[in-house]
């Protein structure tokens, strides 16, 4: 069991690796990666009952990343957890590399291909339903964006999760309130999300999505019997890089050399501080 301090350090180091990877490749969804970093750390280092060795085990927990564009942080988490060598990521987005800009199941640790928004919850409903049919006690987690909530297929899937009373399913919304064109409430207002998911049969837990301790607690609390769970994780897009925080323009922006260095300095300072605590 890792301590909260260890998990915070892990998150800071993964933010740095992601920042470096995007700068090196000159492509990536920077703001989206940094927004959900703490969620992925809480999942992969604490909640998810899965390791590289058990990835094909039918009893493993599953994770489906519906917001596939935040793939850079997912790759870095999987590499750090040992699903593939970290050096593989040097090929990210290069000619013929399997490490492309959205998750594919050609890569060890990735369950299903995503990228087009609005698919992850439905895929997870199918996986959870299979678990019920087979009387297995694995749990399925999926991470969506808040902009993604405008996709109609999300609500078809939510309806079926409630209908089938999937208490082995936890959906998480990375609720950073920004999408590519601006504030989500201005682009297409999907609020009140908590009320909507409750109406679809979910238990809803609202947490600070950049607070690892709160996330771990929400992710590891057992579902109420017969109810799927939604964790509405309030996050900051671009979290950890001062000038990228809460900026829609950083959705998929690549840092300039000056910005890169400044961001690196900020992340190194956080890492140093946590190490000295």
């Amino acid at each position: 069991m890792a301590t909260t301090k260890e998990l915070k350090l892990k998150a800071a180091e993964l933010r740095k690796a992601t920042w470096q990877m995007i700068y090196r490749a000159k492509t990536g969804h920077t703001g989206s990666d940094l927004s959900c970093t703490d969620i992925l750390v809480a999942l992969y280092y604490q909640a998810l009952n899965q390791t590289p060795e058990t990835f094909k085990d039918p009893n493993r927990d599953r994770y489906v990343q519906s917001k596939g564009h935040a793939v850079e942080i997912l790759y870095n988490v999987l590499a750090d957890r040992g699903y593939f060598p970290k050096s593989d990521l040097l090929t990210y987005s290069q000619f013929k590399s399997p490490y492309i800009g959205h998750p594919t199941n050609h890569i060890n640790g990735i369950e299903l291909n995503t990228g087009s928004l609005g698919h992850g919850l439905g895929l997870s409903v199918g996986i959870a339903l299979a678990g019920k049919l087979d009387h297995r006690d694995y749990h399925v987690y999926t991470l969506m964006g808040d902009g993604e909530q405008a996709e109609g297929s999300v609500w078809e899937a939510a309806m079926s999760a409630g209908n089938y009373q999937l208490d082995n399913l936890t959906a998480i919304i990375d609720h950073n309130r920004l999408q590519i064109s601006g504030p989500t409430v201005d682009v297409m207002n999907s609020e009140p999300l908590a009320d909507k998911y409750r109406a679809f049969g979910f238990d809803v837990i609202e947490v600070d999505g950049n607070n690892i301790a709160e996330l771990v607690s929400a992710l590891t609390t057992k579902n109420t019997p017969k109810r799927p769970k939604l964790i509405l994780a309030d996050t900051i897009k671009g979290k950890g890089i001062s000038f990228a925080e809460n900026q829609a323009s950083w959705h998929h922006r690549v840092p300039t050399e000056t910005e890169y260095q400044q961001g690196l300095d900020e992340l190194d300072e956080v890492i140093g501080g946590l190490k000295n605590e």
């Binding site: 369950e111 409903v125 996986i127 299979a130 297929s153 078809e156």
Partner: peptide, 14 residues
């Protein structure tokens, strides 16, 4: 749409 997506999830689990 959900029928197809959920079926993909079912198939992924055997």
């Amino acid at each position: 749409q959900n029928s197809v997506t959920v079926s993909a999830g079912l198939a992924h689990s055997g």
